[in-house]
Amino acid sequence: SEFSSRSGYGEYVQQTLQPGMRVRMLDDYEEISAGDEGEFRQSNNGIPPVQVFWQSTGRTYWVHWHMLEILGP
């Protein structure tokens, strides 16, 4: 990996993601499973900070930056 740390990767995702971009989950996290795909909606200063609309659940759920792989527009 070109990223030395999880936080470095998270910063990359945070700087790159734009609303509407497709993402894939890298880790299991509460209701969301690794491999689930969705659409980035928004972020804020909460914890976790990233709101994604997940195809698997049909609704939005908040996750962490480093848990997401960017699939593209």
Rank of each mutant, 00 (worst) to 15 (best):
E31W: 08
G72D: 12
F53Q: 15
D27N: 12
S43W: 09
E30R: 09
Q55A: 11
G72I: 02
S5W: 09
N45T: 10
Q42M: 12
Y29W: 12
L17R: 01
Y12M: 07
D27A: 13
L71M: 14
G72R: 13
M25L: 11
V52C: 15
V50F: 00
T57V: 13
Q18T: 13
T16S: 11
Y12Q: 10
V50E: 07
G35H: 00
V50R: 01
V63C: 02
E69M: 04
E37S: 02
T60F: 06
G72P: 15
R41W: 13
G10S: 10
I70D: 03
N44Y: 01
W54N: 09
H66P: 01
V50N: 06
F3S: 14
R22C: 03
R59A: 06
V50S: 05
G10N: 05
Y9G: 12
I32Q: 01
A34C: 11
I70S: 00
I70H: 08
S56C: 04
S56I: 01
L68M: 04
V13I: 13
G20H: 12
R22V: 10
L68W: 02
G35D: 00
H66F: 06
H64E: 07
S43M: 10
E31D: 15
R59H: 14
S4T: 11
L71P: 03
Y9R: 08
W54H: 06
Q51H: 04
A34Q: 12
M25S: 09
D36F: 09
V63Y: 04
I32R: 01
G8F: 10
S5P: 07
E31K: 11
P49Q: 03
S56P: 05
V50K: 02
L17N: 05
H64M: 04
G10Q: 08
L68R: 01
Y61A: 15
Y12F: 10
F40V: 13
H64N: 06
V13A: 02
V23A: 03
F3W: 07
E39T: 12
R41L: 13
T57M: 12
S43Y: 09
D27L: 13
D28Y: 05
T16L: 10
E69I: 04
F53Y: 07
V50Y: 07
D27M: 11
P49I: 01
V52W: 14
V52R: 00
T16H: 13
G46W: 11
L71Y: 04
L68G: 08
M21E: 04
Q14S: 11
W65M: 00
G35W: 00
A34G: 04
P48D: 02
Q51I: 02
D28N: 09
I47G: 07
Q14I: 09
S56R: 14
F53H: 10
M21N: 09
Q18C: 08
L26F: 07
Q42F: 04
E37N: 02
Y29F: 10
R41C: 13
V50C: 15
Q18L: 12
G20C: 02
E11L: 12
M21S: 04
G38W: 00
N44C: 07
S4H: 12
Q51T: 00
E2P: 13
P73H: 10
S7T: 10
R24V: 02
F3D: 14
Q55N: 10
Q14P: 01
